[in-house]
Amino acid sequence: MKSLRTQLTVLLLTLGVATAQAADPVKIGGLLETSGPVASLGQPGLEGAMLAVEQINKSGGINGRPVEFVNVNTESDNTRAVTAVKRLIGQGDIAALVGPMNSGSSFAIIDTVQRAAIPMISNGGSRNIVLPAEEKKWIFLAPLTDVLVQGVMMGDMKKRGITRIALLNADSPFGTSGREQLEKNAASYGITIVSQQSFGNADQDMTPQLTKIRGTDAQAVVVWATGPGQAIAVKNARQLGIDVPLYLSHAANDFNFLRLAGPAADGIFIPSSKIYVTDALAAADPQKPVIETFVKDYEAKYGKPPATFAGNAYDSVMMLAAAMKKAGVTDRAAIRDAIEGLKDHVGVTAVYSYGPADHFGAKGDSVVMLTVKDGKFTLAR
């Protein structure tokens, strides 16, 4: 009897998948940058999104319909991002969007997305992408935001007795947003910014800015940037003999950063998702089994460990699927409302709960402090 039950279960699952494959697909548009300076974020993002689609379809799709992910490479360029989103929206059958990893590109397409009244989960890390929520009702975030991770970072500084910091940020939207939020909130942690320097995203040397910082009484240096610039800054700081703690943004929790920074990365601090330290998580942590399964499936599919950005886009697709199943339709307004109504959705990057005034979703206990030891991420102590 047990064998017959098992056979029937397999048959029903097979029929469910076959039905989903035969139905018209539910289309999700992607704006993930697989070339250009932010490709190191967008490419793993696309891989994570495609893994989510594969898993959804294997489990029968969305209400019996398969998911199709249509990605248009924005080339890490804001103007191309606008063209790409118009192209996707113009297809007419795209139910929702997974937005860029690049904050600048996310900002560039907000007005277009709002006018089209199509829900989008952005993967940019700037809080202002969704603020104010009542004016950006169609936009949500999947990554950890600058304010969220800075709170954990400054809490770590307070624990270490650090009260004076220097800030070096890229002049990109991500870097500028991070600077603004740090300037706004540092005092509430008893921290003073004694020097603020900036650099261009394409700069190859930050020695002049770091030399100025070295001449201050800063007890730590914060580098807020994305892409190769953050690795260059860390190398330059080591070359100058700056021996105070170096804190980087959550964009540095990336294998490409470790590769570019090399031995100079050892000892830095990074606020991060939990994706690299699942072995150290408590058994009761609700994210632990979700992350472990994701990592195993990602490695089986792509033959390499996932970067945190893969988890961001994976979560974006999974949350859109959850919202679509709840809405029961592909009506864009109903999907938007369902995303806003998601509560305690356990993802790879975070546990998410959205609301009318909260389009960030990610909760503070989803963030951990990492350090780098012997070229590998590990929990900071």
Rank of each mutant, 00 (worst) to 15 (best):
E183Q: 10
T145R: 00
S177E: 11
G347E: 08
Q150R: 04
S316G: 03
Q21L: 09
G241A: 03
Q239M: 06
R259Q: 11
G124Q: 13
L8F: 00
M157L: 14
S177H: 03
I339V: 12
Q150H: 00
Y276A: 14
E340D: 11
M1V: 15
L182I: 13
I275A: 01
L51G: 02
R336Q: 14
I94T: 01
I270T: 10
S106M: 11
S188H: 00
I62G: 03
N73E: 07
K235G: 14
T371M: 05
I213T: 06
K274S: 15
V221R: 00
E33R: 04
G361S: 14
K27D: 06
S105H: 06
G328L: 10
Q239Y: 01
V82R: 10
A338M: 12
R259P: 15
S188E: 10
L379H: 01
G364S: 13
A282V: 09
S198T: 06
N78H: 05
N253T: 13
A95S: 06
G215N: 03
P44A: 10
P356H: 08
A252H: 01
M101D: 09
A20Q: 14
A350I: 12
L240T: 14
I28V: 08
I335V: 15
Y352A: 15
A280D: 15
S59K: 09
T226A: 08
L167Q: 09
F269W: 02
Q150K: 02
E75H: 11
Q204Y: 03
D285E: 01
A284Y: 05
P306K: 04
S177M: 07
F199P: 10
T6C: 05
F294D: 02
G215Q: 03
